[in-house]
Structures are given as structure tokens and as C-alpha cells.
Design a protein around this nucleic acid. Structure first.
Lengths: 91, 91
DNA sequence: CCAATGGTTCAACTAAAGTCGAACTGTGGC
DNA sequence: GCCACAGTTCGACTTTAGTTGAACCATTGG
């Protein structure tokens, strides 16, 4: 649980979670505030989210499909994800 | 918002928030998992929570009264605090 | 007034996260 | 098979957060 909150306590990672809310996304598609972020850094963000159980990250063609694990989170921490993602702009 | 999630993403700080849920508490009363934690460390935990806007910390006699800022948080991030504190044991 | 109690602040240190280039892996198109 | 593409992993580094003793400040009981 602390790890979930920690994962979401970063603007970039929160932004990713927000984008995934509407549905799975190819990693290449999800744009961050900083467009010229090195791919190793971006990959690291995904890793933190993945290890916290916030997203899934499976190979898909030559890219990667990112999925928000909304149902799993809902079971473990009811209402949490909604409360976080519904909140006002990422400030 | 990230700062609130960050503040709560630590077992000790989360524990404090949980204890304050029932009502204000004197700092001396709120016991942590580690009872022989130095007071400077404990004070630091409070600072993080305070600066994130999670708690209030006002002088009260020779001690300090800690208050969970539940209403303020509810306005800014509806449902968030409840979702976090209602969640299963601090794991 | 003085000493004890309860916390804060400071400064120095340790530990943990973030950053990013370079090397590596797997997939698809040609 | 080979090359380009999309990401991951590794390792070295920088940055940020946690930890703690010591000095300090405020309040209260004697």
C-alpha cells in the first residue's frame, strides 16, 4: 500500500496513470510533460508503477502495451484509485 | 497532491494519520511501531505530514496537539483520505 | 527562579531514488 | 539474415530523503 501511494506521488507517474485511465496505451503513445526524456528514464518510471502493482506492461508487437490495473487496485484498496485520479490537475 | 501521497507513502506516517482519525492526539500519546525512536526523527515525520497539509501541529500546554486535517483534505481531494485510511493493515 | 518535560531546529551523515548513456533483447519488415 | 525500432537492464553518478545527537525554546510544577 505505501508502495502504491509512493508510485503515484510523482507527477510523471501520476500523469501516466491518468492517461491509462481511458484504456490501455502503447508506451510510445503516452506522452509526458517532458517529451525528450531518455527512454531509460521513462522505462524506470514504468518499472516503479509496475512493481507497485499499478500498471501492467506486456509486450505487444515491437512495442509495449500499458494497462492500468484498475480492478485489482479496486479490490485491494477500494476507492483509492478513483480518489487519486479524480483529483484536480497534477499539482 | 503528490506531496500528500508522498507523506502517506511511509508506514510510520501512515500509522500516525490512522491514529489521528479518531480525533486529535497529544504527540506524546501517539505511539509508533518503534517506541524508542529519537524525538528528532519523530518530529521530522510530523513536519512532513504538516507540510503536506495532512495534519496540524499546534502548541498545547507543554506538549503538542496533532490534528488530522480531514475536512481540508476532503475539499481538495474528495474521498482520498477515507480510501487511504480505510485500506487494510499498513503493509 | 530553576529544573524537568516535550518538541523543534540545525548540521552532519547515511541510505534510497532519480537520471541517463551504453550495451543488450526481442520483434517485425525487407 | 540483417537492420531498424521499442524497450529493458546495467552501472556510475547526482539528487533527494531519512536519521540522529546536540543545542535550543517554551511551558509548567515546585
Amino acid at each position: 500500500m505505501p508502495s502504491v501511494l509512493f508510485a503515484l506521488s510523482d507527477p510523471d507517474r501520476l500523469e501516466i496513470a491518468r492517461q491509462l485511465r481511458a484504456g490501455p496505451l502503447d508506451m510510445a503513445e503516452c506522452a509526458l510533460s517532458n517529451p525528450d526524456m531518455p527512454k531509460s528514464t521513462k522505462s524506470h518510471l514504468m518499472k516503479v508503477l509496475r512493481e507497485a502493482g499499478v500498471i501492467r506492461n506486456e509486450a505487444n508487437g515491437r512495442g509495449r502495451r500499458l494497462t492500468l490495473r484498475a480492478e485489482d487496485l479496486e479490490v485491494r484498496f477500494p476507492g483509492l484509485l478513483a480518489a487519486v485520479l479524480d483529483a484536480p490537475a497534477p499539482d
